[in-house]
Design a protein around this nucleic acid. Structure first.
Length: 278
DNA sequence: CTCACATGTTAAG
DNA sequence: TTAACCTGTGAGC
C-alpha cells in the first residue's frame, strides 16, 4: 500500500477520527506497550505525513513515529457502535468510544521527541504532496548525479514519498529511460516531471489509488479488457512485464535496479534519450 | 500446503 | 550486495 499518498491520506483519516480528542492508546501485541502507557488518555493533537513518514503528535511535543515499510497497514474505522477486540498482531491501537485505528506489520513505531522528528524531516527531500515543497532542492541533486534517474527518484533524500509505482509511471509518462543518468536531464524536463508528480500524487491522496493512464490510453479506449494492478489503479508499466505497452504494443520490460524491480517500455523510453512529455 | 513476492528500509557481510 | 524484518496474498503442487 504505502507510497507517500497513502501516508497523507492516512494522516487525514486519523485527524478526522481523533484530532483534538482524548484517546485510548494501547499495544495489544506488546512491542509498543511502554510508550502506549505514557500516551493513554491524552489528547491526540494531530497527525501529519512527510513523505513516507507518519507523525502523530501528543502533548509535550511527543510524536509517535510510524513507518509502514513494505507491508505495514494502519486501518482506521469510524462511526462504530462498539470498538471490536483487536485481531492479529496489533502493534498500536488508538481508540475512542466510536473509532479505532489498528497498526500492523509496520517497520517502525516509536515514541519520538520533536528534535528526532525535525532531524528526519531535515534530511528528507521535497514531498510533492506538501504545498510548500521546493522542486529545485531535488533538482540540485539530480543535476549533479551520475546515478540513474530511476534510482534518484526513489531516494528519499532526493524526493520524499515517491515509491516504485510512481517512479515507473512518471518515467514512462515523460519518456525517460530509468537508467539515464540524472545529470543528463534538462531543467525544463525536471520541472514538467515535478508538476506531473504533484498532480498524480494529489489525486492519489484523494482516491487512494495510483492512476497514471491518460483517458485515450485506457484499455477500454484501446479495445482491451480493463486490467488493474494490486494497488487498484490503472498504470502503463508497473508490474506489466511481458504485456504489451498500452501505447505502442511493445512488450514491457523489467530489470532489478538497486534491489528493486523497475519497469519500462523500450520503444517509448529509449535508452539515454528522451523527448518532451506527451 | 509451501513458496515467492510485494507500493520499504536498515544492518550485516 | 545480500539478508532480515514485518504480514498478506496468490500461484502452484
Amino acid at each position: 500500500m504505502p507510497e507517500g499518498h497513502t501516508l497523507h491520506r492516512l494522516a487525514g483519516h486519523l485527524n478526522d477520527a481523533f484530532a483534538g480528542r482524548r484517546v485510548g492508546v494501547s499495544s495489544p501485541q506488546g512491542r509498543f506497550a511502554d510508550s502506549a502507557e505514557l500516551l493513554d488518555g491524552q489528547v491526540l493533537e494531530r497527525a501529519e505525513a512527510w513523505g513516507k513518514q507518519l507523525f502523530i503528535e501528543f502533548p509535550g511535543e511527543r510524536f509517535v513515529h510510524v513507518h509502514l515499510g513494505l507491508i505495514g497497514k494502519f486501518d482506521v474505522h469510524t462511526g462504530l457502535d462498539e470498538v471490536p477486540l483487536p485481531v492479529g498482531q496489533v502493534r498500536l491501537r488508538i481508540a475512542t468510544h466510536d473509532a479505532v485505528a489498528d497498526l500492523r506489520g509496520a517497520i517502525a513505531c516509536e515514541l519520538w521527541t520533536s528534535a528526532q522528528r525535525d532531524a528526519v524531516i531535515a534530511k528528507a527531500g521535497p514531498d510533492p504532496i506538501r504545498s510548500n515543497a521546493d522542486p529545485m532542492r531535488a533538482w540540485q541533486r539530480i543535476r549533479r548525479s551520475a546515478k540513474p534517474i530511476g534510482v534518484l527518484l526513489m531516494d528519499q533524500k532526493v524526493l520524499a514519498g515517491v515509491g516504485n509505482v510512481y517512479r515507473a509511471e512518471l518515467l514512462y509518462r515523460h519518456r525517460v529511460h530509468p537508467l539515464r543518468p540524472g545529470k543528463t536531464l534538462r531543467i525544463g524536463q525536471w520541472q514538467s516531471m515535478w508538476l506531473d508528480l504533484v498532480e498524480l500524487m494529489a489525486e492519489g491522496v484523494r482516491t487512494g489509488r495510483i492512476d497514471t493512464v491518460l483517458p485515450e490510453h485506457t484499455p477500454e479506449a484501446m479495445g482491451r479488457p480493463p486490467r488493474r494492478d494490486d494497488h487498484g489503479g490503472e498504470v502503463y508499466v508497473y508490474r506489466r512485464t511481458g504485456q504489451p505497452c498500452l501505447v505502442c504494443e511493445r512488450v514491457i520490460r523489467t530489470a532489478v535496479l538497486e534491489g528493486r524491480n523497475v519497469f519500462w517500455c523500450s520503444r517509448c523510453q529509449p535508452a539515454f534519450r528522451s523527448r518532451a512529455p506527451g
